[in-house]
Design a protein around this nucleic acid. Sequence first.
DNA 1: CAGTTTATGTCAGCCTTGTTGACTTTCCAA
DNA 2: TTGGAAAGTCAACAAGGCTGACATAAACTG
Lengths: 170, 170
Amino acid sequence: MSDRGAGQTGGRGESLLFLTDDQLRRGIEAMFFAYRGFTADPDRILAEYTYGRAHHRAIHFINRSPGTTVNNLLDILGVTKQSLNRVLRTLIQDGLVESRVGTRDRRERHLFLTEEGEALERQLSEAQRRRMRAAFREAGPEAVAGFRTVLEQMMDPEMRKHYQTMKDGW
Amino acid sequence: MSDRGAGQTGGRGESLLFLTDDQLRRGIEAMFFAYRGFTADPDRILAEYTYGRAHHRAIHFINRSPGTTVNNLLDILGVTKQSLNRVLRTLIQDGLVESRVGTRDRRERHLFLTEEGEALERQLSEAQRRRMRAAFREAGPEAVAGFRTVLEQMMDPEMRKHYQTMKDGW
DNA sequence: CAGTTTATGTCAGCCTTGTTGACTTTCCAA
DNA sequence: TTGGAAAGTCAACAAGGCTGACATAAACTG
């Protein structure tokens, strides 16, 4: 596909030094430590409520795709419906999420954030974006492009479609 | 530090388009979906035993720094000693990890993988490296450099030192 | 030497969030 | 009208976080 270049070696035969076990181990640890940072700020906010990461994930993807169905969310989040249902139930009871019966198919429930839900979503995502913005700014646009390329390759293929599909509102 | 370039805009004033909220949201989702992929292969292997991700993390960092102390591991993993101890106890009982009393300071316990522990470590890390290697290869060396730069910026500063410190054997 | 701090281990209990299995209700579509 | 999909619920369980309290041994300190 794209020109992958030969990096610092300059020749047409790539050095492949970036594929050594040691480099891979560094990549593995980078994922581990960075993911901790990635979740740290929202976790602190969630701890002030009775919510956890599972609630954050549901709120995030409902906000991204207002009107998404429960089945759709299940597919994205990769958990059982019992797990998701427990989370959705509390969010609905607490008035952060609204569940509307589908018009075309009245078995389906379409999920929306309420005003209050949107307020929490903003609080969480602003904290998370602040850190990512700082990281992106420090790293620069080319590093960000590489970051996204590698992460996309690391996903399971089925997840890649969720990552790319951004417009499934109702 | 390094030249961050101006990307496609070519001018000396960076476009900053890579810092929009939408780009940041894509980065957030990339982290979410990629981390799922990142843990998927080891998780499948661990499920065949009675172990979980917590055991994998302990095994990984003991393998990286043979002879590391319990306190050292606690700092790296960021959990309570009770949580870590539960994991270490089973690994020691199962003969995957050996705990040796320190010579200089006999309060300390130094942790090592046994032959059997190393065998499981290899199985887990080979699975994880396989995916990372494929992602790195597809993305190319420049993307990998960017990937690591962004992730490093995303870490909490205290974690960055663990990421960089690679030589603390005993 | 006495007292304090440090490193580790352990017990008990709690919470979140994942799982499986069984079952019901609703309701679209053949 | 009936089969099956979508959704929801209940129960039980496990992993792996957490807090708090307490024990022991070793090292350090005045």
